[in-house]
Design a protein around this nucleic acid. Structure first.
Length: 212
DNA sequence: ATCCCGAGGG
DNA sequence: CCCTCTGGAT
């Protein structure tokens, strides 16, 4: 995609959805962090289903810490990778309470030092909670960036750095959500809905099954 | 490179 | 049945 194509690509996504938001449910920054941690290799629908009861019982790191690993597991057993996530979540709560006064830190290094929090999760928290123009590259954004030619790359970091260079500044804070939502509902992994796609005019992808 | 790991869709 | 889902740690 040329810079002009990229401009049109995002202008179109913006027109269709002026104020995109996360579909993960949360009521404070800690819940956002926990929800994103739980969302690894899981759909937001399955995360929201489990997180409601979890967050009702434990809306703060201190309260979640009191649940212990077994208590958290009980709430999130319906989510994939639940044992690892429960363990990471409790350890993260312990660090938040002991080292950050029960608050979620706003620095990348401090976030990535939390168990279960890597670059992608840190990018989401920095973007959604603190308004930073980061580009969290998840499975959707990786696929959409490669397929469309927006920011091709072999690994998520390579795609992230290209996106930071190529996405016009005016779109950068919201680009994360536009790309995710586009990947989730239109540019799907299995059967991309190219016929219904609003940005196909600027897309490099050519679907094999002539679905237009 | 491999493991973790349930639910939903096709 | 197989694939996919807002990955991270070893």
């Amino acid at each position: 995609m040329t810079p002009a194509h990229i401009e049109s690509f995002f202008a179109t996504l913006k027109a269709a959805n002026p104020q995109p938001e996360t579909e993960l449910e949360f009521t404070n920054v800690f819940e956002l962090l926990a929800a994103v941690l739980l969302s690894a290799q899981a759909t937001d629908v399955s995360v929201n289903k489990a997180s409601r009861a979890l967050f009702a019982a434990a809306p703060t790191p201190a309260k979640m810490l009191a649940l212990e690993v077994e208590g958290v597991e009980r709430h999130i057993k319906t989510i994939g990778l639940y044992r690892t996530k429960a363990r990471h979540l409790i350890e993260t709560c312990r660090i938040l309470v002991e080292q950050h006064g029960g608050q979620v830190p706003a620095q990348r290094e401090a976030l990535e030092a939390l168990p279960g929090v890597g670059r992608k999760t840190a990018n989401v928290v920095l973007n959604v909670a603190f308004g930073e123009p980061t580009m969290a590259v998840d499975t959707h954004i990786f696929r959409v960036s490669n397929r469309t030619g927006l920011a091709p790359g072999k690994n998520p970091l390579e795609v992230e750095q290209k996106l930071l260079r190529r996405v016009p500044e005016a779109y950068r804070v919201d680009a994360h959500h536009w790309l995710i939502l586009h990947g989730r509902y239109v540019c799907q992994a299995r059967l991309p809905r190219c016929a219904a796609c609003q940005v196909r005019a600027w897309c490099d992808f050519e679907p094999k099954s002539a679905a237009v």
